[in-house]
Nucleic acid binder design. Structure first.
Lengths: 127, 127
DNA sequence: TAATTATATTCAAAAAGACGAATATCATGG
DNA sequence: CCATGATATTCGTCTTTTTGAATATAATTA
């Protein structure tokens, strides 16, 4: 039963709505924590905890740039798993994920001209 | 975050070595509980518990035939998920799964001629 | 109907996971 | 070096999951 060890770790990491949502967000591009904070409206510590689990499972990697830490997917093959899952599930309706908010103050955001930024308001649960 | 509910249930069901093993066994064909018992060498109640979780997640279905209850995969698309996972993981070595033992007394087994049966002995953890 | 076989469910204790609150770390600007 | 901004970690509590043990149920045969 040892052959499963890694798979189990990854499946456990995936089996959580917040972490799935993070991975969906990172599908589009890498993102700093403040981005994700703005996107989801979660407490910073909560977000960090979830990122920690994803990191421990080897699913995401991080890169520090000054104040900000950028997260990216470390194992893009994981999306094949998620896609296959979507196929397998009598899916309610998997709405495409909301784009990033512009409320993040990281240099990457501030570098963009205001008109480039998306202003889509999304409703998320507050945690 | 509601779109994930079903996926989460399924992922949780998958995130367990015994349940993954059961699904791998059922990949080949349906099997009665006694088969799986003989194959894995687990307690009957333990096996039944795991089957219950898989059933609750909608992953397997059962069919009663006299004394025996045969389990089969209810959502074959799930194997696409498992295959994708295998691809994604720096897999130790995913040994092909052992064939069924012949020690099961169900009619399906007894119907086979002795020479048809596999006698491969496998080592499994005893639970 | 009673005994038997195959399987399912319940119960309880231990372990693991979730998450809010508080606190720590790390880089930067003054 | 100190204050601040961004992020990470620790801690405590609550909930869920895991699993052995015991017990229950369903089908079958005597």
């Amino acid at each position: 039963m040892n052959e499963f060890r890694d798979e189990i770790t990854i499946l456990k990491a995936l089996a959580h709505p917040a972490r799935l949502a993070i991975l969906e967000a990172l599908r589009q591009s890498e993102a700093c924590v403040c981005h994700l904070e703005a996107l989801f409206g979660w407490r910073q510590a909560y977000l960090s905890q979830q990122l920690m689990v994803l990191r421990a499972a080897g699913l995401v990697a991080d890169r520090r740039e000054g104040w900000n830490v950028y997260y990216r997917v470390a194992r893009p093959e994981i999306y094949a798993v998620l896609d296959a899952l979507d196929q397998a599930v009598p899916n309610t309706e998997s709405l495409p994920h909301p784009a990033f908010l512009s409320s993040c103050a990281c240099p990457q955001c501030q570098g963009k001209s205001k008109s480039d930024r998306l202003t889509l308001q999304i409703e998320v649960e507050n945690r």
